[in-house]
Design a binder for these strands. Sequence first.
DNA 1: TATGAATGAGGCTTCATTCAT
DNA 2: CATGAATGAAGCCTCATTCAT
Lengths: 210, 210, 210, 210
Amino acid sequence: MKKREVQASVKDERLVKKRRDQMIKGAVTLFIQKGFHRTTTREIAKASGFSIGTLYEYIRTKEDVLYLVCDSIYDQVSERLQKDLDMNRGTLESLKLGIADYFRVVDEMQDEVLVMYQEVKSLSKDALPYVLKKEIEMVEMFEKLINGCIENGELDLVEDQVKMIAHNIFVQGQMWAFRRWSLKRIYSIDDYIKLQTDLLFQGILTKNAL
Amino acid sequence: MKKREVQASVKDERLVKKRRDQMIKGAVTLFIQKGFHRTTTREIAKASGFSIGTLYEYIRTKEDVLYLVCDSIYDQVSERLQKDLDMNRGTLESLKLGIADYFRVVDEMQDEVLVMYQEVKSLSKDALPYVLKKEIEMVEMFEKLINGCIENGELDLVEDQVKMIAHNIFVQGQMWAFRRWSLKRIYSIDDYIKLQTDLLFQGILTKNAL
Amino acid sequence: MKKREVQASVKDERLVKKRRDQMIKGAVTLFIQKGFHRTTTREIAKASGFSIGTLYEYIRTKEDVLYLVCDSIYDQVSERLQKDLDMNRGTLESLKLGIADYFRVVDEMQDEVLVMYQEVKSLSKDALPYVLKKEIEMVEMFEKLINGCIENGELDLVEDQVKMIAHNIFVQGQMWAFRRWSLKRIYSIDDYIKLQTDLLFQGILTKNAL
Amino acid sequence: MKKREVQASVKDERLVKKRRDQMIKGAVTLFIQKGFHRTTTREIAKASGFSIGTLYEYIRTKEDVLYLVCDSIYDQVSERLQKDLDMNRGTLESLKLGIADYFRVVDEMQDEVLVMYQEVKSLSKDALPYVLKKEIEMVEMFEKLINGCIENGELDLVEDQVKMIAHNIFVQGQMWAFRRWSLKRIYSIDDYIKLQTDLLFQGILTKNAL
DNA sequence: TATGAATGAGGCTTCATTCAT
DNA sequence: CATGAATGAAGCCTCATTCAT
């Protein structure tokens, strides 16, 4: 599935990229503060550093801004993950590193993740699939990391389990962003990573219990 | 923390209850279809079976409807959970039952949970805490179930772990609702319960790895 | 062909009629001064004596106002013509009376006719046919008056001629409105009626020439 | 009355002429399709084959384009008529030829005539007189043709009649353009010329009736 | 001369809320 | 208590025009 094209009136590709970057940056800040629906196009223009007229030279509708924002955030997050995947050696260690890295990206991009997370649903039926596709791809990255361990004999799991775990990891990452109001009071990101990883690997039953 | 009062012009308490029930029912349907922001008060009134004027006899602002909806959903979910908690005997079995029951409630109330889940953030700074409080209470229910097992010596966990697990359970419940587009293709609710419970209890390293 | 329905949010039919009459009256004044495109919806609302919100309780789009205006003007004009037609006796005299009466209606409703005449083309492909239909009906009225004379033996014309004459009469009526800047300097409405009628009946070759 | 000057930034007269011709050609096409108000300056620039910036090197405002279009159309039509006038011999025959020729020009330039006809009123109070002046001149051409016949004794009419007839001819020409949706179903341009000419000359009263 | 990115006033329309009946 | 007509602030978007390159 190709990227969904957001039409711009301006021809200069480089300029389009530049202006849209300004736009995304400005919009994220606003969406964090007040959400997509409560943010006006004029506010977006202002926060982006140009006029309302100029804003509309680079998008067609307000929703395009949301799409651009979501798209950009996913790109950033998955780009980071891709690196871990690339040096994946199929060991438990590299799985752990992948998870830790993902959680850290989420931590660094808390606001962005939260925004995307809360506002995707505001995308039209038209744009949603493109963003969902990216989500699926990220879950698949975790599946690959896990499958690597299985192939190496470090884990013994069936496909259904793999998929479930991949989903869990993905959601627990997001969870750090969308439940931070609650979690941050108790844990640092390092605590969070350690606790979640241990739980994931060992479950709640102590050795004693086995 | 007491329930947040939503002011009504009408005095007859029984009538207020009745009208608000109609309202919640109508609103949930609409919020599911189009989300809170895209739903108009007029539509809510119509779906509730009365006029826009009447609607405003029972609420003060549109946001009140959202609050009422969220409040009602949480009430229903936690009421169900409360029962399990009441007959909690501090055994792993009753923890498992609690989890299974929670996941099943979420399954039955998928739409409602999804709505609440996606729209809470639209609540004003004023109303949000009241709903968040309910969430906290639900997480605490799971904490209690777990602590029961610890007291009984069936589990050996420190507080930080307990809280983390409670959060995980809570989120995995919601996850069944908000990722159903993805999960339902792979799992039935029974699969989901079994897999998640096993994973929770035993982790991914399982027997072989130990 | 039925009248095209213009949807109103307000239910009370009588009120709808009343408000739309206000609206048409206000709009015509404005359209005369500045044309449809240069008139804003807010101006229409103001000229109609209510708020912009109220305006939109009675129409769906700005174009609806134009349609309502055109529709109303045609109704008024053709209602007047209908009377003449009703007492048509198939004599040259009643044809002359019909023409004179039509020209007089146009004279009395100069502004309205001019507006409709200049702005119909701004109607969407959707609404245009309904208005054009009315125009056709009016032309047909003149055809009937003429055919009456033919049946009575007062005139001897073939169908093509009848149609042409009907069109000419119709256009010469409008002409009094849309070329008044030029014609009024030279003729009174009575002059105009007399001259046009004579020309129509006798041509320019007159007695001398024959 | 001199031509109204439309200011251009560009000095090279030949270039101005060339660009404006491109502009008029492009604009007419668009005005025909969507009318003056619905056509944007950007569209005009594009249809003219140059950029929006360049467009504004040759005009001052969007309205200038309309003026240029109207002006050009009138020029073309009256240039053709002028020829007939030049060889006017004051005979009924040359009057007939003049009318036929005018109707034929209108037929050939249907679109242009229609545009001009429907959009002149969009000209500002500033530009309108210049275009109206051309219209008057055209009507005067017909007056001259008729007066020629009178001087030759071929017709016997008073001034008021002459003016009325000239107006009628002029309007009947336009009519072929602006009522073509209706007329073309019934008549070819030749039918139209013959019928209108006969009616004009002989009226509707048959010899018998006299 | 030619280009096209930038501007912002202003247009159309929606919708939460009020209030007279 | 119920109704629904009225209100107007505010939102999204367009487009004529300018100006730096």
